[in-house]
Amino acid sequence: MKNLLPINRVLVLIAALLMVSAYFTPLWQISLWAPQYPEGLNMKIWIDKLSGDVDIINGVNHYIGMKHIGVEMFPEFTYLIYVFGAIIGFGILSAIIAKKWMVYSFFGLIVLMGIGVLVDMYIWGYDYGHNLDPTAAIKVPGMAYQPPLIGYKQLLNFLSYSGPDIGGWIITVSALIMIVVVVTEWRRK
């Protein structure tokens, strides 16, 4: 098995190091707009915490019986930092060792993590939107409030948006770099 092109070794290292930003930037965001919130409400999801208008969103959502969003709601926050660390470590290692199979594995890990996170978010969103307090003040028959996975969705008087934040985009860039690496290495055999 051949070694990597020198340029691809550098790219793999860059991709791995870019992912370090996940520890310093928000990865995902959920926004809400309503007639009385023209400026919008924004919640940011980090690797191990939440920030933004979480309290206001909780205040609004309790009328329809949605659960209180808090750090304790997401066990992911306790282990995601290690998962990321392992993947980044593996990336750096594959840049040093520079074996093709390692680079492919690194790319595979990023993709698996991405899919894992999306599936996880969908499951959380389903529960958050469907599993409502039966004693809630406002009950609209047949209405569920599952937030969109990616993109926009109208929920009663709120338009909601879900999508990557800075950290999420940087990881996307890492993934794109890795696609370049994987494709060029694949064509080289």
Binding site: S31, W33, I150, G151, Y161, G163, T172, I179
Partner: peptide, 27 residues
């Protein structure tokens, strides 16, 4: 192959701009 990569990059940029399409304020 190159075109496909451009398409991918284009999709990424489109997603980034999607956020910019949030609803207009209530002016």
């Amino acid at each position: 192959m190159k075109t496909r990569m451009w398409l991918l990059a284009g999709a990424a940029i489109a997603m980034a701009f999607a956020y910019g399409c949030k609803p207009k304020g209530a002016q």
